[in-house]
Amino acid sequence: MICATFIGDLQAALPAGLLLLGVGGTLAVALLFAHQTLRVEQDPRVEAIYQVLPHLDCGACGYAGCSSYAKAVLADPTLIGRCSPGGPAVAQRLAAILSVESAGSSHPIRAVVHCNAHTMDKTYYGNYEGIASCIAGNTLTSAQACRFGCLGMGDCVRACRFDAIHMVDGLATVDYQRCTGCGACAKVCPRGIIEMVTFQQSMMMVVACNSKEDGRTTRAMCKAGCIGCGLCAKQSDIFVVSDNLSKIDYSHYRHDEGTDQAMAKCPTKVIIWRGC
């Protein structure tokens, strides 16, 4: 009895089933046809390159995302070193895929904050009660006395996709375990105090100040500022003093006795180690 009912149902459903099969079959043929004739030939290396890349779509390379970088690097292998989150390892693998000599530097790029003034080191003229954003604070003189140093309102923290920069006591502090060198923080900082530096060693010497004020004013405003005295430049030629500010020329960076001497002699101790 049950069996008969089932067979009856099957008979009733047969036309519908056949119809669906027919539609499916036709579309399958159409798809097969489209697959054969409308195929876009893609270099298999694009996919291979894309797999090697870190899939962060951070934009550090200058392209919209990893897939567009993959296409670009295939067309122009000189772009190999551009992926800073991937670093030298990715650059080498890309070079292997494209069978060229690795063009990129073999050292990672990391963010360096050229300020070392925590809240207690800074001078404030008034209370800043405006919008909590460095861009807004930078337009007003009331945010803090120093017009060159870190404002501490965290635009860079919000820009970082890797949770690698934090406000520690009013100062942007890079977590070098996490920094990938994508440069997003350097792009948003309205005072331009974040520099992307090639880390030749795991720890790099940094002049942690950006103040172009004369020494007297810098001392009055900040306990941790470069006064442009030039003692460091006498010890080692990697230091260049201009506009009352000492800067390290990273294209000639090296660590030797002279730089150690400079660090020891700096009267305000703004030459410090950064890295991990």
Binding site: G130, I131, S133, I135, A136, N138, T139, V188, P190
Partner: peptide, 16 residues
């Protein structure tokens, strides 16, 4: 709300 302040901030960012 400090509307003009936010808009000024945005203009400063875009100008930069």
């Amino acid at each position: 709300i400090e509307l003009a302040g936010y808009i000024k901030t945005g203009k400063a960012f875009l100008a930069r």
